[in-house]
């Protein structure tokens, strides 16, 4: 195992963080486990594929169109579907998002077939050499985007009035509601923003690898792993979790063989849950872990 490989793994962790961040936000703010998250990531990739078929631009530029569209669709889905189920029962949002996962998978299969489709960009198929280390350009792009999005999100959450309102709605929704904070609006904006970040992750994912309708579930599992490692609801934690997954995968793969990488990552997850059940960086303002029953 080389230093080069470890650096590549750490940078790839940026993509893992991008995939996970939306999942973490939705759970942290809304207390909803969004089982459709992987499909939202794929939606970003497929939407970018559609745009690049119409206008031949760099896949990243498609986010100008894809981001707002995905944001809007997700925010509407939250308002028209999930908001009605929040507080109804613990299972309702889970079932709903699982239904969305299946519907999304079916729609993508119908619209794009089951064969993997890819976004093509020079940075998706080239390497860069820094200090004698050759790494994939796509991993550098992913990491840079992850840092930018994580820092931006954290700043919004901690340095703006909107962020304060969001944190209040997460920490104590009942009190926040009595203070005039529009909780349903906060949830819709959170869900939309999380989906837009997922779509961005999808664009990078589709450029680095490929998109196929069956990738939604593996992406969801990857997201969960990163979120739980980093600390559910923690924005910087997703970056820490992503890098950890990337580095451990590469290290174990290099030392013992790639067959052992997923085993090692999941063992590490179990150990972390035992010794630090809140994850590496779960913020105190989120309070204790609880799922569902947010106020409607």
């Amino acid at each position: 195992m080389s230093v080069e490989a470890l650096v590549n793994g750490a940078l790839l962790g940026g993509l893992y963080a991008l995939v996970a961040l939306g999942l973490s936000l939705v759970f942290g703010i809304m207390r909803v486990v969004n089982l459709a998250h992987g499909i939202v990531v794929l939606a970003g990739a497929y939407a970018a594929i559609v745009v690049t078929r119409v206008v031949q631009v760099d896949p990243l530029l498609t986010f100008v169109v894809v981001g707002p569209v995905v944001f809007l669709v997700a925010a509407l889905t939250q308002r028209l579907l999930l908001q009605r189920l929040l507080g109804h029962s613990l299972e309702a949002p889970l079932v709903a998002t699982f239904g969305l996962l299946l519907v999304g998978q079916g729609l993508f299969t119908f619209g794009f077939g089951t064969a993997p489709l890819s976004l093509d960009a020079p940075w998706g198929r080239s390497g860069v050499t820094v200090l004698g280390l050759t790494v994939q350009a796509v991993n550098v792009v992913a990491f840079a985007l992850a840092v930018a999005v994580v820092v931006g999100t954290q700043l919004v959450l901690t340095r703006t009035r909107f962020g304060t309102a969001l944190r209040a709605s997460a920490a104590d929704p009942a009190t926040a509601g009595t203070l005039g904070i529009d909780i349903p609006l906060m949830h819709a904006l959170t869900f939309g923003a999380a989906a837009a970040i997922a779509a961005l992750a999808g664009i990078v994912y589709g450029t680095a690898f490929s998109a196929d309708p069956n990738a939604g579930l593996p992406l969801l599992v990857l997201g969960f792993t990163v979120v739980v490692m980093g600390g559910v609801g923690s924005v910087p934690g997703t970056l820490v979790g992503g890098v950890l997954v990337g580095v451990v995968s590469v290290a174990v793969g290099g030392l013992l063989g790639p067959v052992y990488s997923p085993i090692a990552v999941n063992l590490l997850l179990l150990v972390l849950l035992l010794v630090r059940p809140r994850g590496i960086a779960r913020p105190a303002w989120l309070g204790p872990l609880r799922i569902g029953k947010a106020p409607a």
């Binding site: 490989a5 793994g9 994939q136 680095a208 593996p218 590469v250 063989g257 790639p258």
Partner: peptide
């Protein structure tokens, strides 16, 4: 020879 599970996404060190 590199052997890996289905669904592997990062092949970089094996390619190297």
């Amino acid at each position: 020879r590199a052997e890996f599970p289905v669904g592997t996404t990062d092949f970089s060190q094996f390619v190297q």
